[in-house]
Protein backbone atom coordinates (compact mmCIF):
# COMPACT_ATOMS: atom_id res chain seq x y z
CA UNK A 1 0.00 0.00 0.00
CA UNK A 2 1.38 3.44 -0.86
CA UNK A 3 2.00 5.62 2.14
CA UNK A 4 -0.05 8.84 2.20
CA UNK A 5 3.10 10.53 3.51
CA UNK A 6 4.78 9.80 0.18
CA UNK A 7 2.01 11.22 -1.96
CA UNK A 8 1.33 14.80 -0.84
CA UNK A 9 2.09 17.32 1.92
CA UNK A 10 -0.23 16.72 4.92
CA UNK A 11 -2.34 19.84 4.49
CA UNK A 12 -3.07 18.86 0.88
CA UNK A 13 -3.50 15.15 1.54
CA UNK A 14 -6.03 15.85 4.32
CA UNK A 15 -8.33 17.96 2.19
CA UNK A 16 -12.10 18.27 2.75
CA UNK A 17 -12.90 14.94 1.08
CA UNK A 18 -10.15 12.87 2.69
CA UNK A 19 -10.79 14.41 6.11
CA UNK A 20 -14.49 13.58 5.99
CA UNK A 21 -13.82 10.02 4.75
CA UNK A 22 -11.13 9.50 7.35
CA UNK A 23 -13.35 10.59 10.20
CA UNK A 24 -16.46 8.65 9.24
CA UNK A 25 -14.72 5.34 8.48
CA UNK A 26 -15.69 2.97 11.27
CA UNK A 27 -12.51 0.97 10.66
CA UNK A 28 -10.33 4.03 11.19
CA UNK A 29 -12.39 5.17 14.16
CA UNK A 30 -11.85 1.87 15.90
CA UNK A 31 -8.11 1.67 15.17
CA UNK A 32 -7.51 5.26 16.31
CA UNK A 33 -9.59 4.68 19.44
CA UNK A 34 -7.63 1.55 20.30
CA UNK A 35 -4.31 3.32 19.91
CA UNK A 36 -5.48 6.33 21.89
CA UNK A 37 -6.54 4.09 24.77
CA UNK A 38 -3.17 2.40 24.63
CA UNK A 39 -1.36 5.74 24.70
CA UNK A 40 -3.53 6.88 27.61
CA UNK A 41 -2.69 3.79 29.62
CA UNK A 42 1.01 4.49 29.01
CA UNK A 43 0.56 8.07 30.21
CA UNK A 44 -0.83 6.63 33.41
CA UNK A 45 -2.61 9.81 34.49
CA UNK A 46 -4.30 9.69 37.86
CA UNK A 47 -6.07 13.08 37.84
CA UNK A 48 -7.82 15.32 35.29
CA UNK A 49 -4.95 16.73 33.23
CA UNK A 50 -4.13 19.31 30.59
CA UNK A 51 -3.00 17.37 27.50
CA UNK A 52 -1.54 18.46 24.17
CA UNK A 53 -2.73 16.42 21.16
CA UNK A 54 -0.22 16.80 18.33
CA UNK A 55 -1.78 16.21 14.92
CA UNK A 56 -5.20 16.08 16.56
CA UNK A 57 -6.96 15.88 13.19
CA UNK A 58 -10.73 15.77 13.43
CA UNK A 59 -10.60 15.05 17.17
CA UNK A 60 -10.96 11.24 17.15
CA UNK A 61 -8.10 10.94 19.67
CA UNK A 62 -9.12 14.04 21.63
CA UNK A 63 -12.73 12.96 22.13
CA UNK A 64 -11.41 9.94 23.99
CA UNK A 65 -9.37 12.15 26.32
CA UNK A 66 -12.50 14.18 27.08
CA UNK A 67 -14.53 11.13 27.93
CA UNK A 68 -12.26 9.36 30.41
CA UNK A 69 -14.52 8.86 33.44
CA UNK A 70 -13.70 10.27 36.86
CA UNK A 71 -13.10 6.74 38.16
CA UNK A 72 -10.21 6.44 35.67
CA UNK A 73 -8.65 9.82 36.50
CA UNK A 74 -10.48 11.90 33.89
CA UNK A 75 -11.96 13.68 32.18
CA UNK A 76 -8.97 15.47 30.68
CA UNK A 77 -8.85 18.82 28.95
CA UNK A 78 -6.92 18.93 25.69
CA UNK A 79 -5.51 21.39 23.21
CA UNK A 80 -4.97 20.16 19.66
CA UNK A 81 -2.53 21.20 16.94
CA UNK A 82 -3.03 20.26 13.33
CA UNK A 83 -1.69 21.46 10.00
CA UNK A 84 -4.85 20.62 8.04
CA UNK A 85 -7.64 23.22 8.10
CA UNK A 86 -10.00 20.60 6.64
CA UNK A 87 -9.35 18.18 9.51
CA UNK A 88 -9.94 20.99 12.01
CA UNK A 89 -13.11 21.91 10.13
CA UNK A 90 -14.40 18.38 10.71
CA UNK A 91 -13.37 18.68 14.38
CA UNK A 92 -15.51 21.85 14.62
CA UNK A 93 -18.49 20.09 13.08
CA UNK A 94 -18.08 17.28 15.58
CA UNK A 95 -18.03 19.88 18.36
CA UNK A 96 -14.62 18.83 19.67
CA UNK A 97 -14.20 19.77 23.31
CA UNK A 98 -10.55 20.76 22.90
CA UNK A 99 -9.21 24.08 21.69
CA UNK A 100 -7.85 23.83 18.17
CA UNK A 101 -4.76 25.40 16.61
CA UNK A 102 -3.92 25.42 12.93
CA UNK A 103 -0.20 24.90 13.31
CA UNK A 104 2.78 22.99 11.95
CA UNK A 105 4.36 20.99 14.76
CA UNK A 106 7.58 21.12 12.76
CA UNK A 107 7.70 24.85 13.52
CA UNK A 108 7.66 24.25 17.27
CA UNK A 109 5.13 24.15 20.11
CA UNK A 110 3.87 27.67 20.97
CA UNK A 111 3.11 27.28 24.68
CA UNK A 112 4.95 28.57 27.71
CA UNK A 113 7.23 26.24 29.67
CA UNK A 114 5.52 23.67 31.85
CA UNK A 115 2.05 24.13 30.32
CA UNK A 116 1.05 20.50 29.86
CA UNK A 117 0.81 17.50 32.17
CA UNK A 118 1.10 15.22 29.18
CA UNK A 119 1.02 14.98 25.41
CA UNK A 120 -0.22 12.43 22.92
CA UNK A 121 0.23 12.13 19.22
CA UNK A 122 -1.58 9.41 17.30
CA UNK A 123 -0.42 8.57 13.77
CA UNK A 124 1.09 11.99 13.07
CA UNK A 125 4.78 12.35 13.93
CA UNK A 126 6.06 10.56 10.81
CA UNK A 127 4.58 13.43 8.79
CA UNK A 128 7.18 15.75 10.32
CA UNK A 129 9.78 14.05 8.15
CA UNK A 130 8.12 15.63 5.11
CA UNK A 131 10.02 18.69 3.98
CA UNK A 132 8.33 21.20 1.72
CA UNK A 133 10.88 23.94 1.28
CA UNK A 134 14.60 24.06 0.57
CA UNK A 135 15.25 26.03 3.74
CA UNK A 136 14.36 23.23 6.14
CA UNK A 137 15.31 19.62 6.83
CA UNK A 138 13.52 16.69 8.44
CA UNK A 139 16.06 16.79 11.31
CA UNK A 140 15.48 20.51 11.80
CA UNK A 141 11.71 20.05 11.93
CA UNK A 142 11.95 17.08 14.33
CA UNK A 143 14.37 18.97 16.57
CA UNK A 144 12.12 22.01 16.75
CA UNK A 145 9.12 19.84 17.53
CA UNK A 146 10.70 17.69 20.24
CA UNK A 147 12.57 20.53 21.95
CA UNK A 148 9.37 22.61 21.92
CA UNK A 149 7.41 19.67 23.29
CA UNK A 150 10.00 19.06 25.99
CA UNK A 151 9.80 22.66 27.17
CA UNK A 152 6.00 22.77 27.06
CA UNK A 153 5.64 19.73 29.35
CA UNK A 154 5.91 20.07 33.11
CA UNK A 155 8.65 18.21 34.92
CA UNK A 156 7.58 14.64 35.53
CA UNK A 157 5.28 14.93 32.50
CA UNK A 158 5.07 12.30 29.82
CA UNK A 159 4.35 12.11 26.12
CA UNK A 160 3.31 9.11 24.03
CA UNK A 161 3.59 9.30 20.25
CA UNK A 162 2.21 6.42 18.19
CA UNK A 163 3.79 6.73 14.76
CA UNK A 164 4.29 4.95 11.46
CA UNK A 165 7.92 5.28 10.39
CA UNK A 166 8.60 4.49 6.75
CA UNK A 167 11.63 2.37 7.66
CA UNK A 168 14.27 1.87 10.35
CA UNK A 169 16.18 4.93 9.25
CA UNK A 170 13.13 7.12 9.80
CA UNK A 171 12.39 5.44 13.11
CA UNK A 172 15.92 6.17 14.32
CA UNK A 173 15.72 9.74 13.05
CA UNK A 174 12.56 10.35 15.10
CA UNK A 175 13.75 8.57 18.25
CA UNK A 176 17.12 10.30 18.01
CA UNK A 177 15.54 13.75 17.82
CA UNK A 178 13.43 13.03 20.91
CA UNK A 179 16.46 11.98 22.92
CA UNK A 180 18.50 14.97 21.76
CA UNK A 181 15.72 17.22 23.07
CA UNK A 182 16.36 15.81 26.55
CA UNK A 183 13.59 13.23 26.87
CA UNK A 184 14.01 9.88 28.54
CA UNK A 185 12.81 7.78 25.62
CA UNK A 186 11.67 4.25 25.02
CA UNK A 187 10.09 2.56 22.07
CA UNK A 188 7.26 0.17 22.70
CA UNK A 189 6.13 -2.17 19.94
CA UNK A 190 2.81 -4.00 19.94
CA UNK A 191 2.08 -6.92 17.64
CA UNK A 192 5.60 -7.13 16.27
CA UNK A 193 5.76 -8.92 12.93
CA UNK A 194 1.99 -8.74 12.38
CA UNK A 195 0.08 -6.47 10.05
CA UNK A 196 -1.23 -4.64 13.09
CA UNK A 197 2.24 -3.76 14.36
CA UNK A 198 2.17 -0.46 16.26
CA UNK A 199 5.05 1.66 17.58
CA UNK A 200 4.76 3.97 20.56
CA UNK A 201 7.50 6.38 21.49
CA UNK A 202 7.18 6.89 25.24
CA UNK A 203 8.87 10.05 26.48
CA UNK A 204 9.50 11.35 29.97
CA UNK A 205 10.59 14.74 31.23
CA UNK A 206 12.90 14.81 34.19
CA UNK A 207 12.56 11.09 34.79
CA UNK A 208 11.96 10.35 38.42
CA UNK A 209 8.37 9.34 38.49
CA UNK A 210 8.37 6.18 36.44
CA UNK A 211 10.58 3.57 38.04
CA UNK A 212 13.63 5.75 37.97
CA UNK A 213 12.72 7.03 34.53
CA UNK A 214 13.13 3.63 33.02
CA UNK A 215 10.71 2.96 30.22
CA UNK A 216 11.21 -0.76 30.47
CA UNK A 217 9.59 -0.50 33.90
CA UNK A 218 6.50 1.17 32.43
CA UNK A 219 5.82 -1.63 30.03
CA UNK A 220 7.08 -4.66 31.85
CA UNK A 221 4.30 -7.09 32.56
CA UNK A 222 2.28 -6.07 29.53
CA UNK A 223 1.56 -9.00 27.29
CA UNK A 224 2.67 -9.15 23.70
CA UNK A 225 4.97 -6.20 24.04
CA UNK A 226 8.53 -6.04 22.88
CA UNK A 227 10.59 -3.48 24.67
CA UNK A 228 13.43 -1.68 23.03
CA UNK A 229 15.32 0.45 25.48
CA UNK A 230 15.41 3.72 23.61
CA UNK A 231 18.24 5.15 25.64
CA UNK A 232 20.67 2.45 24.61
CA UNK A 233 19.94 2.26 20.90
CA UNK A 234 17.36 2.92 20.14
CA UNK A 235 -6.88 1.73 32.13
CA UNK A 236 -9.15 2.30 29.60
CA UNK A 237 -11.60 5.19 29.32
CA UNK A 238 -15.14 4.64 28.14
CA UNK A 239 -16.82 6.80 25.58
CA UNK A 240 -19.51 8.82 27.14
CA UNK A 241 -22.41 10.45 25.47
CA UNK A 242 -21.38 13.68 27.08
CA UNK A 243 -23.54 16.68 27.46
CA UNK A 244 -21.20 18.18 24.95
CA UNK A 245 -21.07 21.67 23.67
CA UNK A 246 -24.32 23.40 23.11
CA UNK A 247 -23.81 25.75 20.30
CA UNK A 248 -27.00 26.16 18.39
CA UNK A 249 -27.43 29.77 17.50
CA UNK A 250 -30.61 29.94 19.49
CA UNK A 251 -28.88 28.71 22.59
CA UNK A 252 -26.00 31.14 22.28
CA UNK A 253 -28.39 34.02 21.89
CA UNK A 254 -30.42 32.92 24.89
CA UNK A 255 -27.28 32.68 26.92
CA UNK A 256 -26.13 36.10 25.78
CA UNK A 257 -29.48 37.47 26.75
CA UNK A 258 -29.23 35.94 30.18
CA UNK A 259 -25.67 37.21 30.61
CA UNK A 260 -26.70 40.69 29.60
CA UNK A 261 -29.45 40.66 32.14
CA UNK A 262 -26.96 39.57 34.76
CA UNK A 263 -24.86 42.60 33.87
CA UNK A 264 -21.88 40.78 32.41
CA UNK A 265 -20.20 42.24 29.37
CA UNK A 266 -21.00 40.30 26.25
CA UNK A 267 -19.70 41.24 22.84
CA UNK A 268 -22.12 42.33 20.15
CA UNK A 269 -23.90 39.54 18.32
CA UNK A 270 -22.40 39.18 14.90
CA UNK A 271 -24.08 37.58 11.95
CA UNK A 272 -21.80 34.58 12.28
CA UNK A 273 -22.65 33.63 15.82
CA UNK A 274 -23.41 29.94 16.04
CA UNK A 275 -23.02 29.28 12.35
CA UNK A 276 -20.77 26.35 11.56
CA UNK A 277 -18.26 26.77 8.79
CA UNK A 278 -14.74 25.85 8.08
CA UNK A 279 -12.51 28.77 8.94
CA UNK A 280 -10.84 30.21 5.87
CA UNK A 281 -7.57 31.83 6.81
Amino acid sequence: MPRPEDSLPPDLYYNDTTSAQYTTSSRIQSIQAQMTHRALSLLNLSAPSLILDVGCGSGLSGSILSSVPGSAGGPHTWIGLDISASMLGVALEREAEGDLFLADAGQGVPFRPGTFDAAISISAVQWLCNVESGTESAEGRLNRFFSGLYAALRRGGRAVCQFYPRDDRQKDLICGAAKRAGFGAGLLEDGVGTKQEKKYLVLTVGGGEIMGGDITGVVSGLEGVDVVDGRKGGKEGKRRNGKGVKSSKQWILQKKDRMERKGKVVKATSKYTGRKRKPVF
Binding site: L81, D99, L100, A103, Q107, G108, P110, E136, F281
Partner: peptide
Protein backbone atom coordinates in the same frame (compact mmCIF):
# COMPACT_ATOMS: atom_id res chain seq x y z
CA UNK B 1 -6.05 35.27 13.48
CA UNK B 2 -8.77 33.45 15.42
CA UNK B 3 -11.78 32.29 13.43
CA UNK B 4 -14.56 29.99 14.59
CA UNK B 5 -12.51 29.56 17.75
CA UNK B 6 -9.51 28.18 15.82
CA UNK B 7 -6.26 30.12 15.99
CA UNK B 8 -3.97 30.18 12.98
CA UNK B 9 -0.40 29.72 14.22
CA UNK B 10 1.14 28.76 10.89
CA UNK B 11 4.17 30.94 10.35
CA UNK B 12 5.49 31.96 6.95
CA UNK B 13 8.83 30.15 6.63
CA UNK B 14 10.95 33.34 6.97
CA UNK B 15 9.51 33.88 10.47
CA UNK B 16 10.05 30.37 11.88
Amino acid sequence: AVKEGIANFLLPSHLV
